[in-house]
Write a protein that binds this DNA or RNA. Structure first.
Ligand SMILES: [Mn+2]
Ligand SMILES: [Mn+2]
Ligand SMILES: [Zn+2]
Ligand SMILES: [Zn+2]
Lengths: 141, 141
DNA sequence: TTTCAGATTTGTAATGATTGCAAATTTATA
DNA sequence: TATAAATTTGCAATCATTACAAATCTGAAA
């Protein structure tokens, strides 16, 4: 989901991160779009604007954001790591035709799993895959 | 979960796969344990028994099993791909301390997601991460 | 049994994403 | 301005996976 953050610099500072130009721009891409971009996506989008940008910086910055709880990693596909600035619990659906990864709300609160009593849960991910409505209309599925 | 398959050879043949020694052994490791092994795990376990085994064969075989719907891929961690011969819908919990990936049942049936009406869902994964009860007792968490 | 084609396995090289690391650059402080 | 600390950068190294062609195996036909 689109995050409504009025001041990205302050948002980073509040999380204990000094907002450099690179960090600001990278975070903005994550927060101001629905796309769950990969490192490659982020790098390609920012390259024209910051021609000196290094892909290593994108990796480093995302690690930093992770450590401070500002982004979560989406492993819905094994050959692409995506990132999300919305760390609230929500599901992800990947269409195998157009490749888009979209959000969906999970209606009722998370069920308590009997067999996990006593464990500490720090992360939860709900992934669905298939073919989105739009692609189903355009193809024969 | 432990799959109860009386005749693995027949099980493979029914799925349209000729049961070679390698395929049999690889599938048995998947079906007769709870461990959700990686390629590396499978290769290491079988190497003594099949000294000529190639890691490529493990990769090829798992791809083949996937194509025939006999295994599912578990992407709970971005640096390790795990495999599961139990393709029924169930959740996976990874303990960040001992590293084990265990199964859990999902009580109520999958909720119908309003926003995904019209899409075709072919795969669902529910992943939890944290610290298992055993590890919490041994540590201070 | 021998022969031969097709299926399967193997070893090695190539690929591609991610990380390690040291130098270069930028920023903050005195 | 001078200096130290933080950040970014470029490139090499690592590691999982895939591509590919040669080697081996299997099963049917002769
Ligand atoms: Mn999301
Ligand atoms: Mn499982
Ligand atoms: Zn689609
Ligand atoms: Zn544990």
């Amino acid at each position: 989901m689109l995050l409504k953050i009025e001041n990205v610099g302050q948002y980073l500072r509040d999380a204990g991160i000094k907002p450099s130009i690179q960090r600001l721009k990278i975070f903005e891409i994550l927060a101001k779009s629905y796309e769950h971009p990969t490192v490659e996506n982020i790098y390609t989008q920012l390259s024209p604007e910051i021609p000196t940008l290094s892909k290593t910086t994108v990796y480093n910055t995302l690690k930093l954001f992770q450590k401070h709880g500002l982004v979560m990693v989406i492993n819905i596909e094994d050959n692409e790591t995506r990132y999300d600035a919305d760390t609230s619990f929500h599901g992800h659906f990947k269409c195998n035709v157009c490749g888009k990864v979209s959000d969906f709300n999970i209606p009722n609160t998370q069920p308590l799993i009997e067999s996990l009593k006593g464990s500490l849960i720090t992360e939860s991910h709900y992934y669905l895959k298939g073919i989105c409505a739009k692609c189903r209309l355009r193809t024969d599925n």
